[in-house]
Every structure is written in C-alpha cells, then in structure tokens.
Design a protein around this nucleic acid. Structure first.
Length: 279
DNA sequence: CTCCAGGTACTAA
DNA sequence: TTAGTACCTGGA
C-alpha cells in the first residue's frame, strides 16, 4: 500500500458517520466503494496507508476524495464561534468533509428519507451486491456502487427487493434524469449559482430542501451551507435558542450567516457531536 | 408488538 | 402559504 502523512483527520467518524454510506471497517482497514473504485485506507498513527482498485495508486482520486490539501487549521479557526463548536471539536475531534461523487451521493441520499443511517447503509449494500460489479481483492469479494444506467433501467419492484420502499421510484427516476442529462448539475457544478443548483435538484421527486443540501455540501463543495435534519434542528433550538417553527430556509440562512464560508464543517462537527451525546 | 427513523409529496384549508 | 398525514420497511 501507499503511504502519506496526515494530521488532524478523524478518519473513523468522517467515513462511518452520517455523510457517506459506502464505507466499512474490516479488521483495521476501511473499505469504500464508488461506481468504479474500491478504496482501501488504513491509519497507523499519522501514517495513512492507501490503495485503489482495480486501477491502482490513484493518488489524485484519494487526495481529492479525502480533501487532503485543504487547510483544516484555517477552517477550525473560521468556524470557532462559540463554546458549542469548541465542545464538539474537543469531543469528536477533527471530523472532515468528503468530496464525494455527485451521482452516488444524490442516489444514496434519496434513500435517507424517513430512514435511519443504519437502514440506509443496508439498502446501499443491497443495491451494490445485487446490481453492482463484483471485484475480488486479496481473496475477499467487494461490490461497486451500481452504474447509473443500471439503476435507471431497474423496475420499481427490483428496487424494492433491496429495501428501497417508497423511495424506489424516486431512485429510478433520478437515475433516469441523470442518464438523460435532464439535470443541469454535475460534479462541475461548483462553478454554478447556489440557488440554481438547488432549484434543479428539487425538481426531482423525492428530493426536498434537506436532501438537496446534503448533495450540495457532500458532493458539490458548497461548504457555505449545511443540511438541516432533525439533529440540525435540535442543535438550533436547544443550543442556540432559535424558534423550532422557523422555516427550513430560515434555519439554513441562520447557519450560513453565523458560521460563514465553512458552515458545512461546523454543521457536520456539531451534528456528529450532538448525535453522539444523545445516543 | 408498537413505534419511529438525518423527509417529502400530496391534500385541504 | 401553512398545517396535517401517508408512505415502504426494518431496527429498537
């Protein structure tokens, strides 16, 4: 495996927390899957051992996916607005944001509607095992996330077989929209206007404010916003004293104005912290 | 067994 | 514009 030094990187919570559903801890290695790669990561002290399959040694991918060149100390300073952030950083140290693939992120988060993380992970694995390509690495079987065209051509009942439930038709339609280039959004959308990207995403059935924000923060590098789920709302009302009846857009605005350019990092750190506190 | 989950669409006022 | 409710399904 290849080796690189990393600092202040909570690999465990970053990979297995609430922003991605495609990582597993096997012995002391983390294995992740995308539409065309299996990624293996192993942390020993400050040494990160890494490898990609089947195309090996894809450093560009790993560097970009883990956002290794980002100035994390600077971000910590920028979001250090109060004791809540300080407590979160102290307790759940150094949670980062991954830069994930747009298509996989969109489809995965469509599955989160009214589901807990564990259940979503299960559906994503079912999808991959049944409809994704199989790879054998060191004698073990791994499955890639299914290709968009595969999902677009599955029936609603085929998707329900892996537990997608009422989200099955949303999933298929979203894959179809991507395939037919009906969506004016892709991984290069970071150049585009925030409101326009959100507007595009919400045209999809099954994608509302919250899921759109997840896709934007976790795969399109819109770090100035953070998705507000049930935990995000609890943080706003319980820690910051906001009215629980505020509209979603008003809550998002509050987060963005308070935390600024790196709101997504603040949101994710607070989310992982507050979720752990209340479990 | 029931209850509910990192929401969203649909309907009625 | 806003409030109320159904939705698949599997963990807890």
């Amino acid at each position: 495996m290849n080796k690189v030094k990393i600092d202040k990187y909570n690999l465990h919570t970053t990979l297995l927390g609430g922003q991605a559903f495609n990582w597993d801890l096997v012995d002391d290695s983390y294995f992740g899957f995308t539409q065309d790669k299996i990624i293996e990561l192993k942390l020993k002290g400050s040494d990160l051992y890494w490898q990609t399959y089947p195309e090996k040694d894809d450093w560009e991918f790993v560097k970009n996916y883990l956002q290794l060149e980002l100035d994390y100390n600077m971000i910590l300073e920028r979001i250090n607005k109060d004791v809540n952030v300080q407590a979160a950083v102290k307790n759940i140290s150094h949670v980062r944001l991954l830069n994930q693939d747009f298509e996989q992120t969109l489809l995965s988060f469509i599955l989160t509607s009214n589901k807990n993380i564990k259940a979503v992970r299960k559906i994503v694995r079912g999808l991959s095992k049944k409809y994704g390509e199989q790879l054998t690495i060191n004698g073990a079987n791994h499955y890639l996330f299914p290709k968009i065209e595969v999902i677009a051509n599955l029936s609603e009942s085929q998707l329900k077989e892996v537990g997608a439930g009422f989200r099955a038709k949303y999933l298929q339609k979203a894959a179809e929209a991507i395939l037919n280039k009906k969506l004016n959004v892709s991984n290069s959308s970071i150049k585009y206007d925030e409101d326009k990207v959100r507007e595009q995403l919400i045209t999809l059935n099954g994608v509302g404010d919250k899921i759109a924000d997840c896709v934007m923060a976790f795969s399109l590098e819109f770090y100035n916003i953070t998705p507000i789920d049930i935990w995000g709302k609890r943080i706003l009302t319980n820690l910051y004293g906001l009215d629980e009846n505020l509209k979603y857009s008003e809550m998002r605005k509050w987060y963005s104005q308070y935390f600024g350019e790196y709101t997504a990092y603040a949101g994710q750190i607070l989310f992982e912290y507050y979720r752990t506190l209340n479990r």
